[in-house]
Simulated scan of single mutants.
Amino acid sequence: MCHHAGIVPRIGAQGRTVQTILALVAAGFGAAVMADSYRVLHREGVTPRRLAGTATTLHLVWRAGDMSPLLTRLMTALNAVKPGPDDERPETRASEPDSRRAAR
């Protein structure tokens, strides 16, 4: 993302865990690009912002040949809610409370 935007980041510190990364950001050591799901952590001193034009892809992997009933049910449930090509991310309605909006 940085390269595409013509930015060369200067990395002064790195963290191995989400909590460490958020603590570094809160302490003023820069910024971090993280998955939207971490917005629910509400770290003091950190303001999450969405990045336009980004998306996260998740992959389901399983052992070859494993067709257990539980796996079959999980795959059926995931296929029922997967977005279509024109619906990559559900839009947040303005009427939803902030707590629900932040959890997306």
Rank of each mutant, 00 (worst) to 15 (best):
Q19M: 06
L58P: 02
S68F: 08
E44T: 09
G15S: 02
S68V: 01
W62R: 13
T56A: 12
M67P: 05
G28K: 01
L58A: 10
A64Y: 08
I21D: 04
R16Y: 02
L58M: 03
S37A: 15
S37G: 13
F29R: 02
R50M: 09
A32F: 06
A35C: 05
L51M: 10
R50W: 14
V33A: 15
E44D: 14
Q19A: 08
D66N: 14
A35V: 13
V46L: 05
S37P: 07
G28P: 04
I21W: 03
T54M: 09
T47A: 11
T20M: 02
V46I: 13
V61L: 14
R63I: 04
R39E: 11
R49N: 03
R43V: 11
Q14S: 07
A32C: 05
A52T: 05
R63K: 13
T57Q: 15
V61H: 12
A31F: 15
S68C: 04
T47P: 00
T47R: 08
L24W: 00
Q14T: 14
I21T: 07
R43N: 01
H59K: 06
T56K: 15
A35S: 11
G53H: 08
T54G: 02
A31M: 12
L58N: 10
W62G: 10
Y38I: 11
G65Y: 13
G28I: 03
A13Q: 10
T17Y: 11
S37W: 15
A27Y: 11
L58F: 13
F29P: 00
M67I: 08
T54W: 06
T17K: 01
Q14C: 13
L22Y: 08
Q19R: 09
Q19W: 05
V46D: 05
P48M: 06
G53V: 10
L58K: 07
A55I: 01
P48T: 09
R43M: 06
G65P: 11
L41R: 10
A64D: 12
D66A: 12
A13F: 08
L41M: 14
V25E: 00
G65R: 03
P48D: 05
G45C: 11
A32E: 05
R63W: 08
T17H: 10
A64W: 14
L22W: 00
R49H: 06
A13M: 11
A23I: 00
V25T: 02
